[in-house]
Simulated assay, not measured.
Amino acid sequence: MVMNSLDLPKAPEETRVVVAMSGGVDSSVVAALLKREGYDVVGITLQLYDHGAATHRRGACCAGQDIHDARRAAETIGIPHYVLDYEDRFREAVIDRFADSYLQGETPIPCVECNRSIKFRDLLSTARDLGADVLATGHYVASRALPGGGRALHRALDPARDQSYFLYATTPEQLDILRFPLGERPKDETRALAKEFGLSVADKPDSQDICFVPQGRYQDVIARLRPDAVRPGEIVHLDGRRLGRHDGIIGFTVGQRRGLNVAAGEPLYVVRLEPGEARVVVGPREALATSVVRLADPNWLGDAALEAARDLPVAVRVRSTREPRPATLTWNPDTACAEVALATPEDGVSPGQACVIYADDGPRARVLGGGTIRRVEAESLAAA
């Protein structure tokens, strides 16, 4: 059976592909590549948040100028293009959860929730309604067919662009329909292709991580959404000393050193946040060391069942900026959650962040899944 470049047993011209076009260079190149290969390509852009506020903001995504850029790219490529208003869905599934998570003393990753709830659920449903065989995106992650059926997710060829950390929540059913054509290409090649295709976005800056937060001031967004929930409190040392006050725990994250505005004669870091008391607890760096991470809402992409994991050798990332590091994975039936034991303790492991699990620490490692780092007690945080 002859497969096309998207691993489907159909001729390209008989294969409909919906491309999620954010208005950036990556998704525009994906649409152009697939069109050149002869696929029946349809571009869709989601309007996710306020159109006017992001019209000329550098690094925006799915709003304002980006919608115009996506439309112009579709015209250049010669494909139909539709803009769908997903503002209400995005606000409820992503922005509101983002605000509530910070108020609970967590450090959330809205990109993970956007991919899980909007792009790979709602948009995927729309793609099916349009008769699409696959939904393609400009993410830098690799998807490969498995010998026994189904697909596996792997780190991208370009390690500097790898986005597998943000896509761990993709389900096996979604992977069957999703395609990531840039996963086997370096970013500079994508830029070169954009110029070759004559796309006006060839030199456009990449989007920032939190697209709906102007100038990175997430505290302003939370205060506007939940004005009655932001309250001042104390900054307290682990030994019980009261060192100062703050205007709201939303201004702090676990592992933070700068901006504490307290004098104690030693370098201090945020060790934990206690939202019930609006308290920020600080201490020396060694208090940040975490050996065990417990995961909430795990998503599993491994071959064997997650519940069968017992000291399974894996590699994990507890921050998007860190490389995968050796660990073991165990399913705890008593707590009904996955537990990751780190081979070497890590600093700054923050509730709300993702812990992404890989088969190994290699540059093209397979993604086995992951989950949200669950809030733990102080004594467990330091030595779980």
Rank of each mutant, 00 (worst) to 15 (best):
L193V: 06
V376H: 15
P172E: 14
G148A: 15
L368C: 05
P284F: 02
P9F: 06
A169I: 12
V270C: 01
T344R: 11
L301T: 11
P326G: 06
C337N: 15
F180I: 09
L301C: 10
E379C: 11
G148M: 12
V94D: 02
A223Y: 01
V254K: 02
I249A: 00
T190F: 01
R121T: 05
T137K: 08
L288H: 01
G59W: 01
F197E: 08
V349G: 11
P186A: 13
L273D: 00
L312H: 06
V83Y: 03
E266Y: 03
I177C: 14
D188H: 12
A169N: 13
F98I: 02
G283S: 04
L193C: 03
A289K: 12
G352A: 03
G362Y: 01
N4R: 01
Y82S: 14
E173M: 14
A32K: 10
E346I: 13
P313C: 07
D188Q: 09
T45P: 09
P172H: 10
T253R: 00
R191S: 07
R322L: 08
D7H: 15
R317G: 11
Q215S: 08
A70L: 07
G149H: 11
R128V: 15
A32C: 10
L368M: 13
L8P: 09
S207P: 08
E277V: 01
R91V: 09
R217N: 13
H139W: 06
G371Y: 12
C62P: 02
T45W: 07
A336V: 05
Q208W: 04
L243K: 02
A169F: 09
D40E: 03
G64Y: 06
R57E: 13
V141W: 05
R245C: 15
D311H: 11
E37Q: 14
A343F: 08
F180Y: 13
A308C: 07
G216N: 10
P227Q: 05
D206Y: 14
A132F: 11
V367W: 04
G38Y: 02
G150P: 07
L268Y: 02
V376I: 13
V349W: 00
T328V: 07
G259T: 04
A127G: 15
S22R: 02
R325M: 14
G248Q: 04
E307I: 12
R285G: 02
Q163T: 08
Y358F: 04
E274S: 00
G370R: 02
G198D: 10
A223P: 08
R224A: 14
I250T: 14
R375G: 10
